[in-house]
Design a protein around this nucleic acid. Structure first.
Lengths: 322, 322
DNA sequence: ATGAAAGCGCTAACAG
DNA sequence: CTGTTAGCGCTTTCAT
C-alpha cells in the first residue's frame, strides 16, 4: 500500500506536507504542492479513509435507510438524497430495513461504528433509534416521523392529500368508497386512512370499518384486500389504495373481477411506472419523492455542519390530479 | 467515545483481552470474558471499525454498483446480493453509477480508499475498473461482462432468450417485428438485438435495420422509438422491447396510437410490476434477477475468502413464457 | 491464559 | 511555509 510517507520520500518533503496538499490547505508553496501531486500520481497514491477517519473521527459517508428498496417511491427519494450528498462530497450507503426494527438497529449500529457522518431514515413503525441518537449522530427522518424521538423530519401532507383524492371519487359520483391501507402504526398508513375518513365525514358519511382493510404495503396485500372487499354483501364501488403497491394489487384484483375503472373508482396514492398503463379514470396522486429526499439531505448536511437547535418538521404538499 | 481501554479498566483486564473477547477468540477464560462483556454492555462500547480496518486492512463491507437504482431489475439483484452478504456478516454499500464510467470510477476510488472487501458491479459500457482491479480488490460482474478485464461474471442468457421470445411472436403470426434496444456497446442491448436477429434469420427473414431502434434504456426511449416506428411507411406489426423500461414506453406509445396487443405483438424482455396490468398477449420474459445476485455475491465471497484461479463466467437461463 | 508494547496511515499541534 | 512528533482505537506478536 502506498502511504503519505512514500509520497513524501519521493517528493522530498515531509509527510505533513503531503497531508496538507491532499487536505487542500493553502499553506503550501505551489512548487512543493506540485511536486507532491506528481509523486502521488506516479505512485498511484490514494489516502486511506480508515486512517483519516480514525484520526478525525469524521467521514464523508451518509447512510440512507429505507424500508423497501424495491419500491420506486423510496428509490426516487434515495436518488435525490444521493444527488445532494454527492454534490457535497459524500457517498451514500444505502440500507434496506424491510420495515424491521431489528434490521434497522443493526444498520444503525454499523453506522455508529463506522462512523458515518449522518443518516437519513424512513423509520419503521416502532423504530429504535437510540443507538445513533444517543451518541449525537445526526439523524433526519424522511416520509415518516420517528415516534418518541425529536428529530428533523420532512414528510408529505398525506392526510390532506388523501382527503382531496377521496373527495374526487365522491365528486365523480362514487358513494361506497373502501380504504386499503398499510399496517397500523405506520404513520403514512394511518394518516392516509385519516384523510379518507375526513373526506367521507365532510360529506356526512360515517366511515365504516367494514370498508377498511389493513394489509402490508405490497401488491399481494392490495390484491387480497380488494378481493375480500368485492366479496362483501355490500361491496364498494370505489377503492382508495393508500400506496402505489396496494393500488397495483387493487387494479389486478379489479381486472380479474372484470370491474376495472370506471366501473369501480380507484385512487392510487402515489404514482409508479405501473400507472402508465392504468385504465382511464384512475386518480393518481404524485408524491413529492424527489423534493422529500432533497430537503432531507439538505437538513442532514446542515446538522452535520454543526447546526444546533430544536428538531424541525416540514410538511410538503402533494398535488392531486387525474 | 468508549474504547477498549475504558472497557479494560472497568473489567480489570488489559486492552488486549478485551480485543480478544470481541474477536471471539478462544484463549480467554470464561469468567474474564464474561466480565469484559458486562463492562462493555454497561459502557455501551462498540468497536471502532475505522481502527479495526486500519489495523487489519480489511472490512466487512461490499460495494454494489448498478447503472440504475430505479430499475426494479437492479433492485432485485441488489436485494439478493444484500441477503447473501448480510448472512455472511457483511454490509452492502449501494452505488448508483447512472451508466456513467466517470461516476463508476469515482465510486471505485472510494471503494479502494475505504477499503471495502469487494465489489459486485453491473459495469457500464466502457467501464474503467483498473483502479480497483489493479490493486487486487475482488470484483465480480453481474448482468454484464466487463470488456477488457478478466473477471468473474454471472450473466443471463440474453441472446437465446431474445431469440426464443421473438420466435413466439413469429409463431403468433406477426411478420414485421421491430427491435427497440439499448445503446450500442451495452452488452445486454447488443445480445438481445442479436437474439432478435437470430430468430428472424432462422425463419429466412433478413433483419432490416429500418426496424431497429437504439435508445437509452428508459420509458421515454421506448415511447420515442415506438412512435418513430409507427410512423414508418411500412410500420411493424410487432415490437421486441429489449428491457422492461423500453417495454413500458412501447406499450404507452401503442396505447396512444390505439394499437395495443393483440393488434400489435409485444415482447417485454424482463418483467416489472408494470406488466401486471399489461394487456393480454404481451410476451414477458422473466429475468433471473435474484439468481444473478445470489450467485454473484457467492462468487465474491469466495474471492474475498482468498479463492485464486482464473475468471469464471456463468450464464443463467431465462424462462420465456406468456 | 494474559499483558506490554509496537505499530496500521493519517492529522494536528507545536516548533522552527 | 515546513518539519517533528504524538497519538486516534485497535490487533497482534512476543513475553510472561
Amino acid at each position: 500500500m502506498v502511504t503519505i510517507y512514500d509520497v513524501a520520500a519521493r517528493a522530498g518533503v515531509s509527510p505533513a506536507t503531503v497531508s496538507r496538499v491532499f487536505a487542500g490547505q493553502v499553506n503550501v508553496s505551489p512548487d512543493l504542492a506540485e511536486a507532491v501531486r506528481r509523486a502521488a500520481a506516479e505512485l498511484g497514491f490514494l489516502p486511506n479513509r480508515g486512517a483519516q477517519r480514525l484520526r478525525t473521527a469524521t467521514s464523508r459517508i451518509v447512510a440512507m435507510m429505507v424500508p423497501d428498496i424495491e419500491n420506486p417511491f423510496f428509490t426516487a427519494v434515495t436518488r435525490a438524497v444521493e444527488d445532494v450528498a454527492r454534490a457535497a462530497g459524500y457517498s451514500v450507503m444505502l440500507c434496506n430495513t424491510d420495515e424491521d426494527p431489528a434490521r434497522e438497529e443493526e444498520y444503525l449500529r454499523v453506522a455508529v461504528q463506522e462512523p458515518v457522518a449522518g443518516v437519513v431514515i424512513a423509520p419503521s413503525a416502532r423504530a429504535r433509534l437510540g443507538l445513533a441518537v444517543d451518541r449525537g449522530l445526526p439523524v433526519v427522518c424522511v416520509d415518516r416521523h420517528a415516534a418518541g424521538y425529536s428529530l428533523d423530519a420532512v414528510v408529505a401532507d398525506n392526510r390532506a392529500a388523501a382527503a382531496a383524492a377521496t373527495s374526487l371519487l365522491l365528486k365523480a359520483g362514487y358513494r361506497r368508497i373502501a380504504c386499503v391501507t398499510g399496517p397500523a402504526g405506520v404513520e403514512t398508513a394511518d394518516d392516509r386512512l385519516a384523510g379518507w375518513s375526513d373526506a367521507l365525514a365532510a360529506l356526512g358519511q360515517a366511515p365504516s370499518a367494514d370498508l377498511v382493510r389493513r394489509v402490508p404495503f405490497t401488491v399481494e396485500g392490495g390484491t387480497a384486500a380488494t378481493c375480500e372487499l368485492l366479496a362483501l354483501a355490500g361491496p364498494p364501488d370505489a377503492v382508495f389504495a393508500a400506496n402505489n403497491r396496494l393500488a397495483a394489487g387493487t387494479l389486478a384484483a379489479l381486472a380479474a373481477a372484470g370491474r376495472l375503472p370506471p366501473a369501480t373508482g380507484v385512487v392510487s396514492f402515489g404514482g409508479s411506472p405501473l400507472m402508465l398503463l392504468a385504465p382511464p379514470g384512475v386518480i393518481v396522486t404524485q408524491l413529492p419523492a424527489r423534493a422529500l429526499g432533497l430537503r432531507a439531505a439538505e437538513m442532514l448536511l446542515e446538522r452535520i455542519a454543526g447546526l444546533d437547535g430544536p428538531a424541525r418538521s416540514e410538511t410538503l404538499p402533494i398535488s392531486v390530479t387525474f
